[in-house]
Amino acid sequence: DHDVVPEDKFQETLHLKEKEGCPQAFHALLSWLLTQDSTAILDFWRVLFKDYNLERYGRLQPILDSFPKDVDLSQPRKGRKPPAVPKALVPPPRLPTKRKASEEARAAAPAALTPRGTASPGSQLKAKPPKKPESSAEQQRLPLGNGIQTMSASVQRAVAMSSGDVPGARGAVEGILIQQVFESGGSKKCIQVGGEFYTPSKFEDSGSGKNKARSSSGPKPLVRAKGAQGAAPGGGEARLGQQGSVPAPLALPSDPQLHQKNEDECAVCRDGGELICCDGCPRAFHLACLSPPLREIPSGTWRCSSCLQATVQEVQPRAEEPRPQEPPVETPLPPGLRSAGEEVRGPPGEPLAGMDTTLVYKHLPAPPSAAPLPGLDSSALHPLLCVGPEGQQNLAPGARCGVCGDGTDVLRCTHCAAAFHWRCHFPAGTSRPGTGLRCRSCSGDVTPAPVEGVLAPSPARLAPGPAKDDTASHEPALHRDDLESLLSEHTFDGILQWAIQSMARPAAPFPS
């Protein structure tokens, strides 16, 4: 592969990997390779389809078979030569091979799209000592099968071997295949498990690692696999990028399955594409389908809103127990993405979901129960707010008499603000006073009005108090039968009158 990737590009890729991570280095090298001529790309395919690569990765054979028959990708048995050289000459001794072996032994695996480039050397060096003999053996194999790289107009793939297949390693990572398949204008990513390549439709969760975000852009890794992070704060999961590491605690105790298979379609829109997988259930989501939507993949363990709600429900009964003089119970939860139609709101002032922060849900004790107040519409209280300059209440639009249902020339009671006709409430011909108009209920007259088809109010509507207090003497005590009587009149003013009279009014101040 030294004929494909020059030394300066190799060093530039290593520097970019240390600065921005393996995914960015892979993407940059792939983009550079696509700008080369067809001879360089053909050399790339020839390096990929060597015999030892085909033996190690069985899924490469179907890719090789898909090439046109007129494309010669065979390799000479006596060494490598550029395709432009007409004579089959043995190339001179390859010093770059020693360079590659020494550099890969030092860096474990470079971040390139060629056999030198995919593992994360920093994480491997940190986690190597417990498994040094086995990992050293794996390093000797890295130059042979560490990076199976493929690129063409139909298929483009980048393979990364790992030393996680050490025997006896619980939940060992089998390997990473960062794979971009450009077929019919689409893009897919796969993962390699035990020599087999699994596409998103049959993606397997190998051991402790999972394909957290099938994305090839942005600074985030394709698999949430930063070796420096180790395990999740809650004892979460091992990262795919942690090559040759000792077994780590796999999943939280509440995880239903340690080796679950995540779905390959969004649980909201039932469509495929780039998904984020939940650590607590097999569901996966688009970032845009979450509520609120996320802009980037959160670091650490992530769970959907259903799993978060289940966790909150487990903690909430203990938080609601009476604990005198104790601060509110704080339950730190990872930043969760909410699927459509589901929402768990945190306290005000918290950062938005999706940031690399930890939301704190506070379970406050329930407030003391209070008697429910009568629910009145805002339009129902409008007549009470229509007060004239002299303190006389004006008529609201649409006000109707509670007896006849007519809204023409209605009066407004100064005591309960109900609309009424003087002739309907006082049919006996009582003279109307000039000021202080009161309806039949507030004036103490319980004589029913002779209106055909309208039920008369119940005599129990009024329960006047002592006459010594004029204001308190007109406080009506309405009961269920009074409400039914008012409802039978089918008037809004009657219902409003009952609601206003049912509310307690402050006692009249004593004259000074």
Rank of each mutant, 00 (worst) to 15 (best):
Q243C: 13
G244K: 13
S245F: 10
P247A: 10
P249S: 05
L250F: 12
L250P: 09
L250I: 08
L252N: 09
L252A: 14
P253C: 04
P253V: 13
S254P: 04
N262L: 12
N262G: 09
D264V: 08
C266S: 06
V268I: 08
V268Q: 11
V268C: 11
C269T: 03
D271R: 08
G272Y: 11
G273H: 11
G273W: 06
G273Q: 12
E274P: 02
L275S: 12
L275V: 12
L275E: 10
F285E: 14
H286S: 14
H286N: 13
L287A: 13
C289T: 13
C289G: 13
C289Y: 08
L294H: 01
R295I: 12
R295C: 09
R295Y: 14
I297P: 14
W302Q: 12
W302L: 10
C304N: 15
C304L: 12
S306P: 12
S306Q: 12
L308F: 10
L308Q: 11
Q309H: 09
A310L: 14
A310P: 09
T311Q: 12
Q313P: 12
Q313A: 09
E314V: 08
V315K: 09
V315I: 11
P317C: 07
R318I: 05
A319M: 12
E320H: 08
E321I: 12
R323A: 07
P324M: 14
E326S: 13
P328A: 10
P328Q: 12
V329P: 10
V329F: 10
E330H: 12
E330R: 13
L333R: 11
L333C: 04
L333V: 10
P334A: 07
L337W: 04
L337Q: 03
A340G: 10
A340K: 10
G341F: 15
V344N: 13
R345C: 05
R345V: 08
R345N: 13
G346N: 13
P348W: 04
M355C: 09
T358M: 10
Y361D: 06
P365T: 13
A366Q: 03
S369L: 10
A370C: 09
A371T: 10
L373P: 09
P374K: 08
L376M: 10
D377W: 03
S378L: 13
S378W: 14
S379W: 15
S379H: 13
A380E: 08
H382G: 04
H382D: 07
H382C: 05
P383Y: 04
P383Q: 15
P383L: 06
L385H: 04
L385G: 10
L385V: 10
C386D: 05
G388F: 14
G391H: 03
G391N: 06
Q392S: 11
Q393I: 08
N394F: 14
N394G: 10
N394D: 11
N394I: 10
N394M: 15
L395S: 12
A396D: 11
P397W: 14
A399V: 08
A399Y: 13
G402Y: 03
V403L: 10
C404H: 02
G405A: 13
D409Y: 03
V410A: 09
V410P: 12
V410K: 02
L411T: 04
T414R: 06
T414E: 04
A418L: 07
A418Q: 00
F420V: 02
F420H: 02
H421C: 04
W422I: 03
W422T: 06
R423W: 00
R423C: 14
H425M: 04
F426I: 04
P427C: 00
A428M: 13
A428P: 13
G429E: 04
R432W: 12
R432G: 07
G434C: 07
T435E: 04
G436K: 05
L437G: 06
R438T: 07
R440F: 10
S441V: 02
G444D: 06
G444Q: 02
V446M: 11
P448D: 13
A449E: 13
A449N: 13
A449L: 14
P450N: 09
V451L: 04
G453I: 14
V454A: 10
V454G: 09
L455G: 10
L455K: 11
L455E: 02
A456L: 11
P459W: 06
P459N: 12
A460C: 12
A463E: 10
A463W: 15
G465V: 14
P466Q: 12
A467P: 08
D469A: 09
D469S: 07
D469P: 07
D470K: 04
S473F: 08
H474G: 07
H474C: 07
E475V: 05
P476F: 12
L478I: 06
L478S: 06
L478T: 02
R480C: 07
D481E: 09
L483A: 05
E484S: 01
S485V: 12
S485F: 13
S485Q: 15
L487K: 04
S488Q: 04
E489W: 00
H490G: 15
I495D: 03
I495Q: 03
Q497L: 01
I500M: 12
P506N: 07
A508I: 14
F510T: 06
F510Y: 08
F510E: 05
